[in-house]
Simulated assay, not measured.
Amino acid sequence: MSLTSVKMSEDVWLTCLTHALSTETEEIMGLLLGDIQHSKNGSVTALIWGALPQPRCDRQKDRVETNPEQLTAASVQAEISFICIKLSI
């Protein structure tokens, strides 16, 4: 299965762009939250509804790392967002 298209809100796009431009000389890392939608015609679309930029915990040029606490907090936020979205449907 390969993606045919990706859809994201303007807010997600601006979050990613702002994160990239604010750290323009460094590599960045973040999490995109979303779902996969399968169409009857066989196309597969990624629906991105959230972005969680992650600050770097290591300033070495050859790596981008985040600490486990940040990833855990992002995971909890993703679960809460997922539940809220599913309950609103």
Rank of each mutant, 00 (worst) to 15 (best):
L31W: 02
T72Q: 14
T4D: 05
R63A: 14
K7Y: 04
A51V: 09
Q54T: 13
V44K: 13
A20N: 12
G30V: 00
L14F: 07
M8G: 00
D62Q: 05
L52T: 05
M8A: 02
K61Y: 08
L71N: 03
G30F: 14
R63H: 09
T66Q: 08
E65R: 14
D58N: 15
L17S: 12
D62R: 08
V12T: 10
T66W: 10
H19K: 12
S9H: 12
Q54N: 10
P53Y: 11
L32E: 07
G34A: 07
S39A: 07
W13I: 01
G34D: 05
L52V: 14
T25P: 01
S43H: 09
M8K: 06
A20T: 09
W13H: 05
P55D: 04
P68C: 07
D62Y: 07
K7H: 06
T18Y: 13
W49C: 10
L14A: 06
M8Y: 03
K40V: 04
I36W: 00
S9I: 10
N67R: 05
E69C: 01
T23Q: 15
R56G: 03
E24R: 14
K61R: 10
E10A: 06
M8V: 00
I28E: 07
T66H: 09
D11C: 06
L71Q: 02
S5I: 00
L47Y: 03
D11N: 14
P68L: 08
E27T: 02
N67G: 00
E10I: 08
G42M: 04
T25M: 07
W49H: 13
K61M: 06
H38M: 12
M29Y: 04
I28N: 11
L21E: 11
R63P: 01
L32S: 13
A20I: 10
N41I: 03
H38R: 13
I36F: 06
Q37V: 12
S9C: 13
K61V: 04
L21H: 04
T66P: 05
A46R: 02
L31G: 02
E26I: 06
V64C: 07
T23Y: 15
D58Q: 05
Q54Y: 12
E10H: 08
L31D: 02
R56F: 09
